[in-house]
């Protein structure tokens, strides 16, 4: 595979550049919106806060938490996507395509409707359970049957499982109408209207997931060079795979608990990261984190402008960006599937 940064020095420079892009995207997310705020004012709001200035209040009460949440979710989904693509050896894998997002969503909606769960920390555990259920179902469906594990089977199994959970979710929502309105916007995927307090309880889990993903990098490299090779090198492949699934479930489930259904980040970003740094997952993971965060920040900024004065759900935004990408890869790769 050809990639852009071949020397280690270039990779470090690229990482610095990506960090710069991420910072710019973060700043843009703070500055642009219904009320345009000057960069200087943004700086002041962060470091010389003055509660009497309206723009400062906008930034600290709504924009900052929104940007933080977008960055965390974007990074998590991108890393989850990278691990999923490595695990299933499938270029088209991502948490949304594989039904992991819809699994988490169904569990949350069902819990909200039937057991009146409302605290976010409970949502998070329920989302983990849903993500895990969907991931295991898809993995089992995709790797069994004639011909063993095939990318095509994985995508179809994911689509089937996701169709299952989507219709079950619709069923729950239709029977309890009052909950429909309150969860619809969340369902569509959104990072708006959430406070930093909602993110804090989940953040340790997410950060743990990022670190675990990075530490797994070397094992993932060995695993992707082939099951036989990995076993020959003395790797306990079952353990590595289990750890990868656990990290995927943690990151994808946590993202859904905070932001609802946001697709395609986990599909697009790993491809870009591989295009930049090649197949070394110790590099891919940090690149994915920064690029994923940047993508979701920018998508969120764009979502504020597309249909002004209303806001587009960010999940729709990422789907619009991601679909052409998915189809491009499907057209290019399907010869080999």
């Amino acid at each position: 595979m050809t990639h852009l940064f071949r020397r280690t020095a270039y990779k470090w420079a690229g990482l610095a550049l990506t960090l710069l892009i991420f910072a710019a995207a973060f700043a843009a997310s703070l500055a642009f919106g219904q009320t345009q705020i000057k960069p200087g004012t943004v700086w002041e709001a962060l470091f010389r806060y003055d509660a009497s200035v309206q723009e400062h209040v906008i930034i600290t009460t709504s924009r900052l938490s929104r940007a933080l949440i977008a960055a965390v979710i974007g990074a998590s989904l991108a890393i989850a996507g990278a691990l999923l693509q490595a695990l299933t050896k499938n270029q088209l894998a991502s948490p949304s395509i594989f039904g992991i997002n819809s699994g988490a969503i169904f569990f949350i909606v069902a819990a909200a409707a039937f057991f009146s769960v409302s605290s976010l920390i409970q949502y998070m555990w329920i989302a983990f359970a849903g993500a895990a259920a969907a991931a295991l179902m898809v993995y089992a469906l995709g790797s069994t049957g004639r011909g063993g594990m095939s990318p095509m089977k994985f995508v179809l199994a994911g689509a089937a499982i996701s169709a299952l959970f989507v219709s079950l979710t619709q069923g729950v929502l239709v029977t309890s109408e009052q909950s429909l309105q309150s969860v619809l916007f969340w369902l569509a995927g959104s990072v708006a209207g959430r406070t930093v307090e909602m993110l804090l309880p989940i953040l340790p889990f997410m950060a743990g997931g990022w670190i675990a993903a990075f530490l797994l990098g070397h094992s993932v490299n060995i695993l992707t060079s082939g099951e036989e090779v990995a076993k020959g090198l003395g790797q306990k492949t079952l353990w590595v795979k289990t750890a990868m699934i656990a990290v995927i479930v943690l990151l994808a489930g946590g993202s859904v608990a905070v932001g609802g259904s946001i697709g395609f980040v986990g599909l697009v970003i790993p491809h870009i990261a591989r295009g930049l740094v090649g197949i070394d997952y110790r590099w891919i993971i940090p690149y994915c984190a920064l690029l994923g965060g940047s993508l979701l920040l920018l998508a969120d900024v764009a979502a504020r402008f597309v249909i002004m004065p209303q806001e587009m759900p960010i999940g729709v935004m990422t789907a619009l960006i991601g679909t052409p990408f998915f189809i491009y890869i499907a057209r290019r790769r399907s010869g080999r599937i």
């Binding site: 949304s96 395509i97 095509m152 995508v155 179809l156 689509a159 395609f264 189809i327 499907a330």
Partner: peptide, 8 residues
């Protein structure tokens, strides 16, 4: 594959 992408 294209169908699944478009349906998303």
């Amino acid at each position: 594959l294209v169908g699944i992408g478009l349906s998303a």
